[in-house]
Design a binder for these strands. Structure first.
Length: 831
DNA sequence: TTGCAATGCGCC
DNA sequence: AAAGGGCGCATTGCAA
């Protein structure tokens, strides 16, 4: 299928994009008439829409019979199962025409991910990359998909008439009309490649053992059919469902955010301009400018031959309408000269490439724990400060205090840098959420936003795109209450349910760690319990009842009789909590020492304390590392999905370190993803929920959101909790309970967060979409990296051959449907 | 004008 | 010697 009028990089396929053609292929034995095995349908031709309507029964369910369609063909077609490459996209495009797509059988994109989850940097998962990779498809008689760029790309003619390096591709509508023969071959090849890919992947997955807990359950093809096939379909329905967003609320929030950002930005610029006049006009969001302003002249920590310049010109919008020398009128942009503010300021953190870092953490070290509210250019506040009205303590100021000479100047610097942090955080909220959530490109006609939920991570987690709802500010940090903009439709409510410490529970299960399992069994505050286990003096205090592990207020009590552990030993608990999360991710003592700003020795000691009662965890981690670095080269998740690593013989030691950490993390993160997936399948299978009208909308790692009628909220909530607590066919196969917290609310702020969407498709049909609207596609010729973006604009599918030949035959005979037929041998001329 | 690498930041 | 797993996405500044 090819689609026009959609920009896949920006827009959701729900309610965006139009199909311009599609092709069908069901294997070489199928005969569409005259020995042709592939048909291609032109929807741009006169009456294109009518042709599509004729195919409606093919897309839809058998029960929806259209009289206009010859019933014989209809019946045989509808019994077919369809395989797609990136089903999500095609499904949405077809649904844009009002058809419900049925007969989903498999998605080769997901199958490929299951077979090898580590292709993202090495080929990727586009149809082109997969079908052209001899390790995937090795049929000598078939060639893989050939990219549009290869076939239709032309060097863009430069102004001087010479051929440029930039490759352009004409709009697909033009190609379809003007390069007809080639175009038909190209699109036919997509469906053929998809079928070929499907057969290959089926063989691959069938050859992989599927083991759960050491017991053979079948092959990975069985796994696919049991889990990822229905999961793929579920994700698509969730994308279609979408979520309602309150735009007027967001518009209000935007005003406030912009105003606050402006104030904080001016505060910083005013201060900086005392040292460097042009800083008054700088872009505080540019890390390049900031780096020079704060650390100009510093050496690169990785290459002592390189250093930042002491001053540099930057191009900024000429808002002040300054008329530069030699110019008559103000230009659109102008140059400003930035220089280092204070040479005593020393960078403490560096970026990966060795330059001083200006990230939030680095800036906070400079500023210390001070408020961004003080504006020392404001006389009144300066006076107040001099009189000692503000309670600032010198200890709270960061390293900038001394570097800028201490006293008032030092304080000024710290407060200004704190204001800078504020600007950055507000900016990211605006550009990541407040703006995109108001745009129409990610929402459909009904005003709901339809992001995408993808199975495209190495561990099997979902990712959410357009928008990326998974990085919404956490409840406590959501200064503009953005989650409040996600609302239930009138008469409906949301159920927001999340797992408590899912990954830690998984780790406890996988490592069979007694201490952790006991702590979970005991319930209460897990991190406090960890702290108690790590520090004998805390344990003593608990045993003597001079502190409480946790406290459940009884009627009439307004505070605990003795202090709580989390208050009395706050820093120990904080460390315990960080260790709980960090260790599962493979973090080392050196990393922790930097985070905590303590010596490596001290960090090592703390880590040792953590492992002391959790020896099983260390053993388990060592086993995983060995497994990853052995000839097996892989680790597995709870449900038996594998993650393959490169051979350790061929990597650097730092890459080996990465492999070892991933080997520890993947089973934990990937198993958590398995649990969340099973829970969602349980929820979607639940007949009572269906009956009550509750639908899944979103998932974010350990949290799900449903929407349904308010009146049945409580009943539905109980069912959801049940499904999540026993996600494996109604059972919990873990050694540890799954704790679930669920709320019923009108908007998301009342509870936890989440969302995502998928893409994918596979086998008899090939639907071609073209996107990019009327714009020409411009690609530099050296861009050989097949990105997912390119696969997203295509959708390919095929029908599993059951009665393939007769169907093909009938279709081919319906001349009104078919403008042309292409056989694969004619396809894909190489240029 | 467009794409890209580097950087940074949010979440779990 | 360095040492955090997994993502998506925005912006900047530069290259083609």
């Amino acid at each position: 299928m090819q689609v026009a009028k959609i920009d896949v990089k920006q827009e959701t396929p729900v309610d965006h994009g139009e199909m311009i053609c599609f092709s069908i292929y069901s294997g070489p034995e199928a005969d569409f008439g005259n020995g042709k095995s592939c048909i291609w349908v032109d929807l741009l031709a006169e009456g294109g829409k009518t042709i599509l309507a004729e195919f409606a029964p093919f897309f839809e369910d058998t029960s929806i019979k259209k009289a206009m369609f010859p019933s014989l063909i209809l019946l045989s077609l509808c019994r077919h199962l369809v395989v797609w490459h990136n089903y999500s996209f095609d499904n949405h495009i077809i649904e844009n025409y009002g058809f419900k797509v049925s007969g989903f059988h498999a998605d080769t994109m997901h199958m490929a991910r299951l077979w090898d989850s580590s292709r993202q940097t090495e080929g990727g998962y586009s149809l082109e990359a997969l079908s052209g990779d001899p390790r995937v498809c090795h049929d000598e008689n078939l060639i893989g998909k050939v990219s549009m760029k290869t076939i239709f790309g032309r060097g863009k003619v430069k102004k001087d008439g010479s051929n440029g390096k930039i490759i352009t591709i004409p709009p697909v509508e033009d190609l379809q009309r003007e390069e007809r023969k080639l175009w038909i071959c190209y699109s036919a090849l997509d469906s053929i490649s998809t079928l070929n890919l499907y057969e290959s992947l089926k063989r691959k997955l069938s050859g992989m053992e599927w083991k759960v807990d050491g017991r053979i359950e079948g092959t990975m093809l069985d796994f696919y059919e049991k889990y990822w096939q229905p999961f793929g379909e579920l994700l698509v329905t969730m994308e279609t469902e979408g979520m309602l967003v309150d735009r007027s609320y967001l518009a209000e929030v935007e005003k406030v955010a912009r105003a606050e950002q402006q104030v904080a930005g001016n505060r910083f610029r005013n201060w900086a301009s005392k040292y460097c006049p042009d800083a008054k006009y700088m872009n505080v969001g540019s890390d390049t400018q900031l780096r020079l302003l704060l650390f100009g002249g510093t050496l690169n920590s990785k290459d002592q031959n390189e250093s930042l310049p002491l001053e540099k010109d930057f191009k900024v919008p000429n808002i002040e309408k300054v008329i530069e020398e030699g110019k008559k009128a103000p230009t659109k942009f102008r140059n400003i000269k930035l220089c280092r503010l204070e040479s005593k300021l020393e960078p403490e953190m560096y970026t990966a490439s060795g330059w001083p870092s200006v990230c939030g953490d680095a800036l906070k070290t400079l500023a210390g724990k001070v408020s961004a509210e003080f504006d020392f250019t404001d006389e009144a506040q300066v006076l107040e400060t001099k009189e000692g009205v503000s309670e600032d303590k010198e200890a709270a100021y960061g390293t900038a205090y001394a570097a800028f000479g201490g006293g008032l100047k030092g304080k000024e610097a710290c407060h200004a840098i704190a204001a800078l942090c504020e600007v950055c955080s507000i900016d990211s909220l605006i550009s990541n959420f407040i703006l995109p959530l108001q745009g129409s490109h990610i929402s459909g006609k009904n005003g709901r936003i339809h992001g995408s939920l993808n199975i495209n991570t190495e561990t099997g987690r979902l990712s959410a795109r357009r928008p990326s709802l998974q990085n919404q500010p956490a409840l406590e940090k959501d200064r503009y209450k953005i989650r409040q903009a996600f609302v239930a439709a009138p008469g409906n409510s949301l159920i927001v349910a999340d797992y408590g410490q899912l990954e830690l529970r998984i780790l406890a299960h996988l490592a069979n760690c007694k201490s952790m399992l006991d702590a979970f069994k005991a319930g209460g505050d897990f991190h406090s319990r960890t702290a108690m286990n790590m520090y004998p003096h805390i344990r003593e205090a608990v045993e003597q009842k001079s502190v409480l592990l946790e406290w459940h207020p009884q009627p009439g009590e307004d505070k605990p009789p003795v202090p709580l552990l989390k208050d009395a030993f706050a820093s120990e608990r904080r460390k315990a909590k960080m260790l709980n999360f960090s260790i599962a991710y493979g973090k080392t003592a050196v990393g922790l020492s930097r985070d905590w700003k303590v010596s490596v020795k001290e960090a090592k000691e703390t880590v040792a304390r953590w492992y002391n009662e959790r020896k099983e965890v260390r053993n388990w981690q060592d086993e995983r590392k060995k497994e990853a670095c052995s000839t097996k080269r892989c680790v597995h998740t709870l449900l038996g999905r594998a993650r393959l690593f490169p051979s350790v013989d061929q990597v650097t030691s730092s890459q080996r370190g990465h492999i070892e950490r991933a080997a520890i993390n993947t089973p934990v993160q990937g198993s958590a993803a398995d649990v969340a997936m099973c829970a969602m399948l349980e929820i979607s299978k639940n007949l009572r929920l269906k009956e009550l009208g509750w639908r899944l909308l979103l998932q974010v790692h350990d949290e799900v959101i449903l929407e349904g009628p308010t009146e049945s909220g409580e009943e539905a909530k109980a069912i959801v909790v049940e499904c999540m607590s026993k996600p494996f066919d109604g059972k919990n196969i873990l050694r540890v309970d799954l704790s679930v917290d669920a709320k019923c609310a009108q908007n998301w702020i009342m509870g936890p967060i989440q969302s995502s969407w998928i893409f994918h498709s596979a086998f008899f049909f090939s639907l071609f979409f073209c996107h990019m609207g009327n714009r020409h596609l411009c690609l530099p010729s050296n861009n050989i990296r097949p990105k997912e973006a390119s696969s997203v604009r295509r959708a390919e599918f095929s029908i599993v051959r059951r009665t393939g030949n007769s169907v093909a035959h009938h279709l081919a005979r319906n001349a009104r449907c078919i403008s042309d037929i292409a056989v694969w041998k004619d396809a894909a001329p190489r240029r």
